[in-house]
Amino acid sequence: MSAGRKYVVGRAADLADGERLIVTVGGRSIGIFNVGGKFYGLPNSCPHKGAEMCRGVLVGELSSPRPGEFSYDADRRYVTCPWHGWEFDIATGQSYFDPTGTRTRTYAVEVEPSPGSFTPGEYARLVQDGFRLREPGPYSVETFAVTVEDDYLVVDLAPVRPKRERPAR
Rank of each mutant, 00 (worst) to 15 (best):
I22G: 01
I22L: 06
V25F: 06
V25N: 03
G27K: 14
S29E: 14
I30G: 06
G31I: 06
I32Q: 02
I32K: 07
F33V: 06
F33G: 03
V35L: 08
V35H: 03
G36I: 10
G37T: 04
Y40I: 03
L42D: 00
L42M: 03
L42T: 01
N44Q: 08
S45W: 08
S45F: 09
P47R: 07
P47F: 00
P47L: 02
A51T: 03
E52G: 09
M53A: 14
M53G: 05
M53K: 06
R55Y: 04
G56H: 09
L58A: 00
V59K: 14
V59T: 14
E61R: 15
E61V: 06
L62F: 10
P65H: 02
P65Q: 08
R66K: 15
R66H: 10
P67Y: 07
G68Y: 02
G68H: 03
G68V: 09
E69R: 15
E69L: 15
Y72S: 11
Y72E: 12
D73F: 09
A74N: 12
A74P: 13
D75S: 15
R76H: 03
R76C: 00
R77D: 00
R77G: 03
Y78R: 13
V79N: 03
V79G: 01
C81A: 09
C81P: 04
W83D: 03
H84P: 05
G85N: 05
G85C: 06
W86M: 06
W86T: 05
D89Q: 04
A91H: 01
A91G: 02
T92D: 03
Q94G: 13
Y96I: 06
F97Q: 15
D98M: 15
P99H: 02
P99L: 03
T100M: 13
T100Y: 12
G101S: 13
G101E: 08
T104S: 10
R105Q: 06
E110N: 13
P113C: 11
S114M: 08
S117K: 14
F118H: 11
T119N: 04
G121R: 14
E122N: 09
R125A: 14
L126C: 13
V127N: 08
Q128N: 07
Q128G: 07
D129Q: 14
D129L: 13
G130Y: 01
G130E: 00
G130A: 02
F131Y: 11
R132D: 04
R132M: 08
L133S: 09
L133Q: 07
E135I: 08
G137Y: 09
S140R: 15
V141E: 11
E142R: 15
